[in-house]
């Protein structure tokens, strides 16, 4: 394996007394698409800021492209593209101007920036909007422009903090397609998200982070195998009767989980588990057999209670 482009060991960030990130260790290989999954407040964005060389770690080791952000912040930032959680496009500038100006911040020449801007508008499918005002763009277009902007300096690593939060399904799929093309061209992607489908779409490998620590690490499929079963049966009996039904279901499948509104049976063969439930005399109002998803892994690892 070639040497990693990002290497974090026991990475830690304290804000006053609280640890936003607590002894995180991970590596990202060149060209890899790496995901940081976790609930709100898990420390994803803080990690991204440290990797993006705009936040100083409290302790631990961090190497980006072989450099230490504490020593070479600007040199690292010169080779990164950053797509922040909330768009921070320049609303006082037009679409194409946003790209031109951002390239100039990196010290690139006017000629280089002008050429790149046109290529990137094309890539982001915004060529016909080049002269539009930023505020007149839809959410998905703004996101694509932010991504285009992050590519103006030809970054080796692209950091995407919740790239599709708040977008409609069409916009998300267009965005995923663009990101997938970047990945094919060899750009290393680091993505934070709490959308499981996004992680499954985009990431070769991911870590699940909670309370500033890594709970699990692996490829999406491997994580599902390790932390869940192949299939999940969802049964609804009405909120009054779920607890009673769970008693009857004891021993069906690998594991039974009772939620306020439904019961989940984790089993390798969902249909068989459902037949067994019916054989035991249960008549659910609705039943659903589905493939296990990363969401099951995520909820199992980070718990179901609301994290505030």
């Amino acid at each position: 394996m070639p040497s990693p482009v990002i290497e974090a060991r026991d990475l830690r960030k304290l804000y006053k007394e609280t640890a936003a990130v607590d002894s995180l260790s991970f590596e990202v290989a060149p060209g890899e698409s790496f995901g940081l999954l976790g609930p709100n407040g898990a420390g994803k964005s803080t990690t991204m800021r440290m990797v993006g060389a705009v936040s100083t770690r409290t302790s631990g080791e961090l190497s980006i492209l072989g450099m230490d952000p504490n020593e070479n912040g600007p040199d690292i930032r010169a080779q990164l593209g950053v797509v922040p959680q909330t768009d921070n496009l320049d609303a006082e500038l037009r679409v194409r101007e946003n790209l031109l100006v951002y390239g100039r911040y990196f010290g690139l020449s006017r000629a280089v920036v002008a050429q790149r801007a046109d290529e990137l508008l094309d890539f982001a499918q915004l060529s016909d909007r080049a002269k539009a005002k930023v505020d007149d763009l839809s959410g998905g277009m703004k996101r694509r422009l932010t991504i285009a902007r992050s590519l103006i300096n030809n970054p080796r690593i692209l950091l995407l903090d919740e790239p599709t939060t708040g977008l409609d399904p069409q916009a998300r799929h267009i965005l995923w397609d663009r990101l997938f093309r970047l990945k094919e061209q060899g750009t290393t992607l680091v993505v934070t998200t709490h959308y499981m489908d996004e992680a499954e779409q985009l990431c070769d490998r991911l870590v699940v982070v909670d309370k500033g620590m890594i709970m699990a690490e692996g490829a999406p499929a491997a994580l599902i195998t390790e932390y869940s079963t192949r299939e999940v049966v969802e049964l609804r009996f009405g909120s009054e009767r779920n607890a009673d039904a769970a008693v009857t279901l004891a021993g069906v499948g690998d594991r039974v989980e009772v939620l306020p509104d439904r019961i989940l049976i984790y089993a390798d063969d969902g249909e068989a588990a459902l037949s067994e439930a019916v054989r035991r005399g249960l008549h659910p109002i609705t039943s659903l057999v589905r493939r296990s998803s990363l969401e099951d892994v995520f909820l199992r690892l980070t718990g179901r209670s609301l994290i505030e």
Partner: peptide
Amino acid sequence: MTASTTPAPTRGALRRGGGVGALYSGNP
């Protein structure tokens, strides 16, 4: 659009060392 494997040449980066909080890149 091509993904580059060489670092983007930045005028500023040549001029200064310094960490995360490096103050000046000579590009106001």
